[in-house]
Design a protein around this nucleic acid. Structure first.
Lengths: 119, 119
DNA sequence: TTATTGCCCTACACTAAGTGTAGCATAGTA
DNA sequence: TACTATGCTACACTTAGTGTAGGGCAATAA
């Protein structure tokens, strides 16, 4: 069991962001100790790690919330969850391709600078 | 010479965003016609296209503004501008690599779903 | 025993990079 | 003359947080 500070360190998400995710319903209201301080389990930590992964693929907080709702409904929602991840995978792939194109444009710009051009 | 609507269409940037960029100093205050409507030249269009490229690499509006200030100072700032682009290139490359890693994580997740696992 | 850290809490203000809306002007068309 | 399209400004709202003020509680230091 961990404090919010330890959890933040473990999962690489800012304390404020963890509280924000809780408000947004990405986590159930976590347990509290006698001083009203949040207490996180290994289970919470793993879920936060996956939240981080999904956020880093560009999935919105709202969609992660939807995903979490489905997860809580049980195994019957596996097809729907699979589709959410599939869609996100496609978006991420498109994003990577787009960024590769922009990389080429930057390289072209740099080449022009190296030739002493001003534009 | 183009209206803001034509320009927005040409460069693929929303009308509101173009006005926003002007307020932020990414463009000089553009010319106006007799009705106070903005008028854009080919030059403005090209600069907007490059702004779009830089934004798509993830460069912040503030940094693009800085870049534009340097550009206006003339050829003596080419080294500084080159460095700005170089730095952005490195950030973009790191971003692409990060996204590739997240793509692998999504694929692993999907594989687990295909094996009928719930997590 | 008291004072000082250090971590936690809530609530609210602020940020970036826009998007959306209200209320108005003007130009071209029916 | 009326309508529609487009433009204008100013302001509110959005997302995904970050930062800050003001306060609680526990452990350590003087």
């Amino acid at each position: 069991m961990f404090t919010i500070g330890q959890t933040a360190e473990k999962v690489g998400i800012n304390i404020g962001a963890i509280r924000f995710y809780e408000r947004k319903g990405l986590l159930d209201t976590v347990e509290r100790d006698a001083n009203n301080n949040r207490v996180y389990s290994d289970h919470d930590v793993n879920w936060l790690l996956f939240i981080r992964c999904l956020r880093e693929t560009g999935m919105s907080v709202e969609e992660i919330q939807r995903y979490y709702e489905l997860f809580k409904e049980g195994v019957t929602t596996i097809p729907e969850r699979t589709e959410l991840v599939q869609t996100q995978r496609m978006k991420l792939l498109a994003d990577i391709e787009e960024k590769k194109r922009q990389l080429i444009r930057l390289d072209e710009k740099l080449e022009r600078y190296y030739r002493g051009e001003n534009y």
